[in-house]
C-alpha cells in the first residue's frame, strides 16, 4: 500500500492530469445530455460582462440595424388593417391574438460551434419562459432553453440537436429541418416523402405543428434536392433566409394559447 502511495506521489503529475480530465469530461457529458442549465448560476456575471461590451460594440452596427428596422416597419405598415379594402360589412370578424412578440437584443451569439447559442437581454422579469420561439424579421432563429432574471439563452437553429418541423410552402408537405454542424449558411430538410418534387428556390416555412413557432414563418429556400430513386425519404439542402452571423434584434414569441393546447393534448393522451 505504501508503495502505491509512493508511486502515485512520484507520478503525481500524470494522476493529477487524469483527475482533471475526468472532471472536465464529466462536465462535457453533463452538458451533452441535459441541455444547458448553466445560466442561472453564472448568468449574472457573464450576462453583465457581455451586455456591457455589447453596449459599446453595438454602436458599430447601429446603421445596419436601423436600416433593417426601417424595412420591417415598412412591411408592417403594409399589413395594417386600413390598408385593405373592406367590401362586406356584414361579416363579423372576431380577432383574438394568438401570439405576442417581445423585442430583445442579442448580446452574444456564436456560429462556429456544433452547438450554437445566443444570449438575449430579456429574462424572466420580462415574461420570457423556456421553450419560447425566437425569430427575426427574416425568419426563425431558435428556441429559448434557459432563463435567468435578466437574460435568456437561445438554442440556435445552428445546433446539431435542434430539429424543427418544417413545411414546403408550395405543396404543404412536411419535413424536418436539421443542421449538420458545418456551414452556418446551409441546413438540411430531411424526411421528404419520395413522391414530392422540389425545385431549387422553393420556399420552406415553419409548419405550426409545435407550440414554439406560428405557422408560415420563413426558414429558407431550397438550394439543392438530393433525390435518390430507391429511397423512401429524401433530403434537400436549404439556404437559410437569416444570416446568423449578424443577428442584432430578435422577437421572442409568446404563444398565448399554449397552456390550452397542452391541456387538450394531455386529455387526448389520457383517453388512449
Amino acid at each position: 500500500m505504501r508503495n502505491l502511495f509512493a508511486y502515485i506521489l512520484k507520478q503525481y503529475f500524470f494522476f493529477l492530469f487524469l483527475l482533471l480530465e475526468i472532471v472536465a469530461f464529466s462536465f462535457v457529458l453533463q452538458n451533452n445530455y441535459q441541455q444547458a442549465t448553466f445560466l442561472n448560476s453564472t448568468g449574472k456575471v457573464v450576462g453583465t460582462v457581455l451586455s456591457t461590451f455589447n453596449n459599446i460594440s453595438g454602436y458599430f452596427s447601429l446603421k445596419k440595424a436601423n436600416e433593417s428596422l426601417i424595412r420591417e416597419n415598412a412591411r408592417l405598415r403594409n399589413k395594417m388593417a386600413d390598408k385593405f379594402l373592406l367590401t362586406d360589412t356584414l361579416v363579423y370578424y372576431h380577432v383574438d391574438s394568438l401570439f405576442r412578440y417581445i423585442g430583445a437584443k442579442v448580446i452574444s451569439s456564436t456560429i462556429s460551434h456544433q452547438k450554437n447559442y445566443l444570449v438575449l437581454n430579456k429574462g424572466s422579469l420580462h415574461g420570457i419562459k423556456k421553450d419560447m420561439g425566437v425569430i427575426t424579421m427574416n425568419g426563425i432563429v431558435g428556441t429559448v432553453v434557459d432563463v435567468s432574471r435578466n437574460f435568456s439563452r437561445v438554442m440556435s437553429v445552428l445546433h446539431v440537436n435542434n430539429k424543427i418541423n418544417a413545411r414546403i410552402k408550395k405543396n404543404n408537405h412536411l419535413g424536418t429541418l436539421e443542421w449538420n454542424g458545418n456551414d452556418y449558411r446551409y441546413g438540411y430538410l430531411t424526411d421528404i416523402p419520395m413522391h414530392v418534387d422540389l425545385e431549387p428556390g422553393d420556399t420552406i416555412v415553419t409548419s405550426g405543428n409545435s407550440y414554439i413557432f406560428p405557422e408560415g414563418l420563413m426558414i429558407g429556400t431550397v438550394e439543392e434536392y438530393y433525390k435518390q430513386p430507391n429511397e423512401k425519404f429524401n433530403n434537400a439542402l436549404i439556404s437559410y433566409s437569416v444570416d446568423y452571423n449578424n443577428v442584432y434584434f430578435v422577437y421572442i414569441i409568446v404563444n398565448l394559447k399554449k397552456s390550452e393546447l397542452m391541456n387538450l393534448e394531455r386529455t387526448q393522451l389520457n383517453d388512449r
Binding site: 482533471l20 472536465a24 457529458l29 453533463q30 448553466f38 456564436t110 447559442y117
Partner: peptide, 18 residues
C-alpha cells in the same frame, strides 16, 4: 463559462498542459 460549452475548453487545455 462564457461560451456556454462546459468542459470542452477545460479538457483540451488540461491536455495541452500535460
Amino acid at each position: 463559462i462564457f461560451n456556454g460549452t462546459l468542459g470542452i475548453h477545460t479538457a483540451s487545455s488540461v491536455l495541452l498542459a500535460f
